[in-house]
Design a protein around this nucleic acid. Structure first.
Lengths: 233, 233
DNA sequence: GTGACAAATAAGTCTGACTTTTTGTTCCCG
DNA sequence: CGGGAACAAAAAGTCAGACTTATTTGTCAC
């Protein structure tokens, strides 16, 4: 994603970031820049740059005379795409997927409603294409092709909402969907009902029916929650 | 907030960050590290650390032989609290407030519903306290005191939801609420209906009535949208 | 015990030299 | 005239070492 490890400090981050987000260093742990520089065999300047980035993610705090201390999880910038990726790659992947799925369930219906009002003709066309692609690959174990269109579908919805905060969740949603296909239980073809819902959402957006787009999308996200046993009794 | 300007590089960021997010340097603009270092009268090491942070926020991209280029707005990490603060302090403050308010309208009702299921006894008590504080300061131009309780109220809801992604939006919501009181039109006492809604949400959460908590919170956020003329006809 | 003072420590800063990658130009040959 | 290869320049990247500064901790006197 983006450009991983495009410098020495990037390489260091690819090691340290996952380690910290995986809880390998408990909150309050103290690291020393010089020691880390030695460990990763880089100069202090490079190590300092890496620490600065971790600091900007609120993963660590650097203080004079004490060192680089790991902050408690509750202070991390959990919306940072890099942090999300690190956590999804690590041990608390299931927990992270649940959190993100709940977030989806809150955001996507509203985004769909807005998309019904704001989507351009091109975006409507894209959406319909995606839905068609999903239908076309919904049977016969073509999970990978299905996933591509599913990710594209949700991304278009989020972008078409016209809200930049929603739009920037496209990568996150894509990551969640991909995770479900690649790592979770997803051996069979997708649920036909879900496929139909996507087609209907595309319809509703095209027709500018905000309420219906929202309601249908809510059904989709409820399905996603149920898959992870996050119920709403 | 947090610890602004806790180093030389922090001071540089406090200058450059707002400038970039304000669109002072259009996307594609090229900056050179050495020139910037001169301009801010810091060493190249310090300047490099600042650039690294901006890079981790996806505000800029640093490439050899070309320089530090400003990325298009659509790629920025708009959930980074620092970026949010910079943008709220700058020219597109109104636009940013609208985006965030829409995000609130999606997230908070769901968070309230979850809070009704997951809130601890302490959190219920806190919530009730906040609601009482709001009522107590709802008349007589005690806007500042009202704001404090209002911010606390929404923060408790988000934390009590048990979802870490929601919890981390506490600062953002607080910033939006503070912005409304301090910079937008808010001369009179708060809307009595809104105050009542908060009290009722606290009730619903206490009683574990998720559906009601969600519905009532949705009414609160609809009110917030209407204040900014974001209608739902 | 309390206060001030001193020492130790780790981050912070600066400088200068060197390396590496990328880009743009030039020049030669087809 | 066009295209490709070699070359030169530019800017970021890296490293090493010396120095500064803030903060903590320990000690000693009162």
């Amino acid at each position: 994603m983006t450009t991983p490890g495009r410098g020495l400090h990037g390489h260091v981050l690819d090691s340290l970031g996952p380690a910290i987000t995986a809880g390998e260093y408990p909150p309050g742990s103290v690291l020393r820049t010089d020691e880390l520089a030695q460990r990763f065999d880089v100069s202090r300047s490079v190590m300092r740059e890496a620490v600065r980035v971790l600091e900007s993610m609120h993963l660590v705090e650097s203080r004079r005379r004490v060192g680089v201390t790991v902050r408690p999880k509750s202070e991390w910038n959990v919306y940072d795409p890099q942090v999300i990726r690190w956590r999804l790659a690590g041990a608390d992947r299931p927990h992270q997927l649940r959190s993100l799925t709940v977030l989806r369930s809150a955001v996507e219906p509203v985004a769909a409603g807005l998309a019904a009002r704001n989507a351009s003709a091109e975006q409507c066309a894209e959406l319909t294409e995606c839905a068609i692609g999903m239908v076309a690959n919904s049977r016969g174990h073509k999970l990978e092709e299905y996933l591509v269109h599913d990710m594209a579908f949700h991304r278009v919805i989020l972008v078409a909402s016209g809200n930049e905060m929603f739009a920037r969740l496209g990568d996150v949603v894509a990551e969640v969907l991909a995770g479900r296909t690649h790592h979770e239980v997803m051996f069979e073809d997708p649920d036909p009902a879900a496929v139909t819902l996507h087609v209907q959402v595309a319809e509703a957006v095209r027709e500018g029916d905000a309420a219906r787009a929202e309601k249908l999308t809510r059904e989709i996200t409820v399905g996603a929650l149920q898959e992870l046993d996050i119920l709403a009794p």
